[in-house]
Amino acid sequence: MTSIAIIDYGMGNLRSVAKALEHVAPQARVIVTQNRQDILQADRVVFPGQGSIRDCMRELAHWNLVDVVRDAALGKPFLGLCLGPQALLDFSEENDGVAGLGVLPGRVVRFADPRDPVTGERLKVPHMGWNQVRQAGNHPLWRGIPQDSRFYFVHSYYPRPADETLVAGWTCYGFEFASVIARDNIFAVQFHPEKSAQAGLRLLANFANWNP
């Protein structure tokens, strides 16, 4: 039986993430926790995030979880959600500039006046709704998910990893951005798989069975 710790550091509601994981992996033990020991002992870790990056980094420090998250990101199956992938990078330009965890090289930047590449029309920010993800490579977490499947997004900033080999999925919103970044045991998605119907549930199921 695998155990999955969803890190709860006060940034958003994690009930939906837990429910979706329980739904696809009934055999797994899913815990929502801010306890260091729980996270260190879990087989798998989910690192969510919501709201602003400044609050996110402040709460991680407040709960004394920075080193635990870094360790998990270097050692076991690790799924970043929404603000999760942004926090893993070096730096975000949100809130006048905030340092991230620096687990992966890269920056987080704002959608600045995105335009439809064909019509030139102004696109709304936040990028909100169902958009496609073009899978880069054959990552095990994409298993059973058709190329260009749609996932639910809601965000105003996006990850720009330093190195394209870190990109596991691309999404177009005026231009292509890295909606999924991955390396070794880390898979981090800008969208919300727990709110992305069948495609999202399949991704969570793949994560529950992933042995990188």
């Binding site: 439809d116 990028h127 709704g129 958009n131 073009r134 260009d148 997004f153 919103y173």
Partner: peptide, 8 residues
Amino acid sequence: MGLAKRII
């Protein structure tokens, strides 16, 4: 390829 319009 792009963001879908939603029906709610």
